[in-house]
């Protein structure tokens, strides 16, 4: 069972789940995630010391009004690495968390032993406009995000209580604050990806309908110097939820062979 830690990072309260032993790995969850320890993290914790914080406004972390841009979240997690006294760590980010992870890598690759991006959003891709997530009801979100809808059950809300609905609203608000317009990207990020100087694995679900492999995954793999692209045949936008064992294995192998830390 992971331990729940509460930290104050330069005045911002963070709820973080932590488990496992080995070299440190920071996992950044996607929109609507947070506060959960799923199969993917369990698998990673067999090889790494996994740190899994909830973004401000997600899970048990309260909203942080000062966050206006995704780069604010990137600095927030660099502050977290400082607070944890982790000079270097493996960084894994999925979807929205992949966007934050990429921003971090453009700023401070020297703090990263490796970078794994799982179907990230965050860049403008020629020939693709992300479907407008905030206008989707739950069934539309499930069909857009998941190739295997059964995997969505892991993120299903426990009930429809006011508390649960308020949390969902707070999470949506935290994402919308930084991702409503431009929708799901930072216009400055794509050019900056060329700065990333840490071994990078780009994981992609073959059936991603939010950010399809072609052109999105291919663009990411092309823009990050030396990045490897690994496609997961039975996944949509969230392979770490749809094929958790396969993705965790790929992360472990990549970090063992290429990562700057054992």
């Amino acid at each position: 069972m992971p331990a729940l830690r509460e930290l104050s990072i330069r005045g911002t309260l963070v709820h973080m789940l932590q488990d496992g032993a080995g070299s440190p790995l920071l996992f950044l969850h996607g929109a609507g995630g947070g506060g959960r320890w799923l199969d993917f993290q369990t698998q990673l914790a067999k090889a790494f010391s996994v740190y899994s914080p909830s973004h401000p406004g997600h899970g048990g972390s309260p909203a942080a009004e000062w966050i206006e841009h995704v780069s604010d979240l990137a600095f927030h997690y660099l502050d977290l690495l400082d607070a944890l006294e982790l000079e270097r760590a493996h960084l894994v980010g999925a979807s929205f968390g992949g966007w934050i992870a990429a921003e971090i890598a453009t700023m401070a690759s020297h703090r990263l032993a490796s970078l794994v991006l799982i179907d990230p959003v965050g860049i403008r891709v020629d020939g693709w406009i992300y479907p407008f997530l905030f206008a989707m009801d739950i069934p539309e979100i499930v069909t857009t995000v998941f190739h295997n809808p059964m995997a969505a059950l892991a993120l299903a809300p426990p009930d429809q209580s006011a508390e649960t609905l308020a949390l969902q609203y707070r999470q949506g608000t935290a994402i919308a604050r930084v991702a409503w317009n431009p929708h799901l990207y930072d216009p400055l990020l794509r050019r900056r990806l060329g700065r990333i100087a840490t071994p990078t694995l780009v994981c992609w679900g073959a059936h991603d309908r939010l950010a399809p492999l072609a052109p999105c995954g291919e663009t990411w793999a092309r823009e990050i110097p030396g990045a490897r692209l690994r496609v997961f045949a039975d996944s949509g936008h969230v392979p770490h939820l749809e094929e958790p064992d396969a993705v965790a294995t790929a992360v472990r192998e990549f970090c063992r062979l290429h990562g700057g830390l054992r």
């Binding site: 905030f134 206008a135 989707m136 009801d137 609203y169 949506g172 608000t173 994402i175 919308a176 604050r177 409503w180």
Partner: peptide, 10 residues
């Protein structure tokens, strides 16, 4: 109205 249009986040 499509329900999400009633309640945009924030």
């Amino acid at each position: 109205m499509h329900p999400p249009f009633w309640r945009p986040p924030g």
